[in-house]
Design a protein around this nucleic acid. Sequence first.
DNA 1: TCCCATAGGGATAAATTTATCCCATATTGC
DNA 2: GCAATATGGGATAAATTTATCCCTATGGGA
Lengths: 118, 118
Amino acid sequence: MHERKIPLNLNCGLDLIGEVLYGKWKIRLLWFIYEGYKRPSDLQRKIPDASRRVLNAQLKELEQHELISKVIYPVVPPKVEYSLTDFGMTLMPVISALGQWGDENEERLRNVILKQIE
Amino acid sequence: MHERKIPLNLNCGLDLIGEVLYGKWKIRLLWFIYEGYKRPSDLQRKIPDASRRVLNAQLKELEQHELISKVIYPVVPPKVEYSLTDFGMTLMPVISALGQWGDENEERLRNVILKQIE
DNA sequence: TCCCATAGGGATAAATTTATCCCATATTGC
DNA sequence: GCAATATGGGATAAATTTATCCCTATGGGA
């Protein structure tokens, strides 16, 4: 993967959840899988800004973290389906809360973010 | 700051909240300020693993995003105090939910994270 | 025959984020 | 005078994450 040189911080719950959710597309991947977009190509189409390479990598990490599971059908062309594990499912209310706060404050957030970039 | 070459994604609420919370120490900074650790030196002591430089930078961004506000007392040696804005306060239940999920699943998370590193 | 879809991953470059080091200010205490 | 305290930020290096490009495999359709 990439041998870490700076140790992880795993002190509290916030560190731990950060570790599994940190990644540019992970939260969206979880959410789309939750919504029923199961195949990698579906997810790629839902997130066209992401490179295929990184989506694969992040899906693999989500799987290693036991938030999603993967079924490979032995057909050609290949077919793969992801779904949330029970564990991953318990995260949905939390992600929902994040998205809801973002939606509720959309305008203000858009303002302060764009002002800071300019 | 650093001129962006890759455009931001600001499509949905999840993107927006991600933009203001993304940063290695931001969530913890918000939480500690919420708990009453207001001065930069206090926060530095609470988060000794972070470099002073980055804490300053992230505090500044949190301020630009209107989640915290800053009061500078004109004394020597300098004294600065941060506090949550009303807006930042509305984020606390969400952060609390994140931390709670992490705490509830601490053992499992620690396992899967460390297994993946090894 | 050639191309497309489907999934995966190696190699490498680019972008972004963090870390490290150093300097400045001005008062208090030794 | 010298060190410590407190805050801030420039310059640069290192670490980490993402992007880009390319190659694999196989059956079906134009």
